[in-house]
Design a protein around this nucleic acid. Structure first.
Lengths: 135, 135
DNA sequence: CTTGACCCTGAACCATGGTTCAAGGCTATA
DNA sequence: TATAGCCTTGAACCATGGTTCAGGGTCAAG
């Protein structure tokens, strides 16, 4: 049949059927039309929304934030600055996460460096000793 | 009273009472002794475990991994190499997360760069256009 | 001996981003 | 027309790391 049903959309986009329904249930994606049978039929517009969602997700936006982005993107009274603010905030959040992880790596490197890493008993392990506060 | 009850441990370590009970319930921390009343009484050893947990958590270990670290740390047959392997693996995981976040930031930077960020309508927004696939 | 702060238990609930299940209806193909 | 493979719904479940709640018991001070 010519209808773009959920399974076809799933194949086309690589997003699972259950996941697409989940996005709809969560109010992130607009509800597609239905056939008399109840089957969802998707338009190209629906698919664009879905791909928008996945791209934004890959950029680190949460589903809640993506919901906002999608609303703004179709709101005639919204403007570029609002979108830019969200992007800038997200960049800051990402940078914060990076900084935290870099600190973790640095600290872990530092305490692992002196671990003999051999068959010595645990009492010689710099990692365990650090964690137990015997710096 | 002289007993180190859960509330005192919470104040001393900065870990919430509910959180301490949660760690015990999850089998990560060993069960403290009890008074006839049922009150938990903690030893310095218990507190060391708790601080170990929080330090390891700050280094990026999950509670499951910390459980392993604690077991190894008291197992007489374990050795330094096993601990070192866990630390190395964690460093790799952290590096992987950093790489993913750096890619996100780079991509987000790249698409936000050309956004006019003013009162222009959404149709001029490079961010939205990117997400809709109109690169 | 009462009051208030502290403690106990078990169970439910929170966010996040989905996945899985049960029980049944619709459709394409041979 | 049989039947495999789609589709529907609502609800429960997963991991992670806790928090909150209801309904009580205990302890120390006044």
């Amino acid at each position: 049949m010519a209808y773009l049903t959920i399974g076809k959309v799933a194949k086309k986009t690589g997003v699972g059927v259950e996941t697409i329904r989940y996005y709809e249930r969560s109010g992130i994606l607009s509800k597609p039309d239905r056939l008399p049978s109840g089957y969802r039929v998707y338009t190209e517009e629906n698919i664009k929304q879905l791909l928008f969602l996945r791209k934004a997700q890959a950029l680190g936006f949460t589903l809640g934030e993506i919901s906002d982005l999608l609303s703004l993107s179709t709101d005639p009274t919204s403007n570029c600055e609002q979108i830019n603010d969200l992007a800038k905030e997200k960049i800051l959040q990402i940078e914060e996460k990076i900084a935290i992880l870099q600190n973790m790596r640095r600290d872990l490197d530092a305490i692992a460096q002196y671990c003999p890493a051999n068959s010595q008993p645990i009492s010689d392990c710099s990692i365990i000793n650090h964690l137990y506060g015997n710096s």
